[in-house]
Amino acid sequence: MPVRLTRARNVGCMGEHRNWPERLHVVTGKGGTGKSTVAAALALGLAAGGRRTLLVEVEGRQGIAQLFGLEPLPYAERRVAQTTGGGEVRALAVDPEEALLEYLDMFYKLGAAGRALRKVGAIDFATTIAPGLRDVLLTGKVKEATTRSRDGNRFYDAVVLDAPPTGRVGRFLNVTEETARLVKVGPIKTQSEGVASLLRSPMTAVHVVTLLEEMPVQETLDAIAELSALHIPVGRVVVNGARPPLLADGRVTKAEIKRGLTAAGLPAATATVSRLATEAQAHLTRRELEESLRLELAELGRPMVELPLLPAGVDRAALGELAALLMRA
């Protein structure tokens, strides 16, 4: 594992965050759990107080641009948000073709020949025939950003990767294995080994985002088992969309509802009372299931963070709230 560089405490480099010490935060989760939102909030939180973070997406969805209300991002590191103390979040949408060209250019000084390669469809070909190769290029770019330094200081205090969903994340991160099947020698192999060692070092943590619903929780358990078997460090379990704990006693009667409605000065017709009771009962059923899922997650013994359901949807202000909650956790 590489030794952390000693450095002067200036220009955007404040060292590790107390609660989130890793340098590379990989965020995964089942589709629809809000993993992109959590990744963005984490990048924002970690940038507070004058730090600089990079938020990376690799699936070509332009989710970052949508979250921050921006035009689609080019393949370049652009500032997407400023934070307190002169901190900033930059964002990068990694495109496998661009990453391959950049990579070839770095090692082989291809210049115009690189563009010719694209013309004959070579890039498309190379990144399609073997998704393992494509993933090495994507994760290679992430590694480069994570370990980049300028004047002896690391350039980014933290890098947050909005990774593929739980079903694919193991294969995505297990680059060496996938690549070794095809490539026995050469710089791609060296590159994949570099990525593999970063991903297995304490500098990295994979956080899994879930909802308190059956499928996402099952996929969370599966993903954590898979990552553990691959010796990739698992960080937090982020429970997203948690609801406020209403009806803590877990029971409700129509008589109580009727009395309460009357006390609040509302009409307490039988139909009203019984419909409210039905809704309350459905809520309790739901909550019971959520409770058992929460227990299942707790049994993993991993640190858990809960983020509230944001009924109004996610905007920049909401991202800020989530960021603050994450940093306190």
Partner: peptide, 16 residues
């Protein structure tokens, strides 16, 4: 009023 907390919760469930 502090009374009828159950109904208050039921109303919030309905509102949400």
């Amino acid at each position: 009023t502090g009374d009828n907390q159950v109904t208050a919760d039921v109303l919030r469930i309905h509102a949400s």
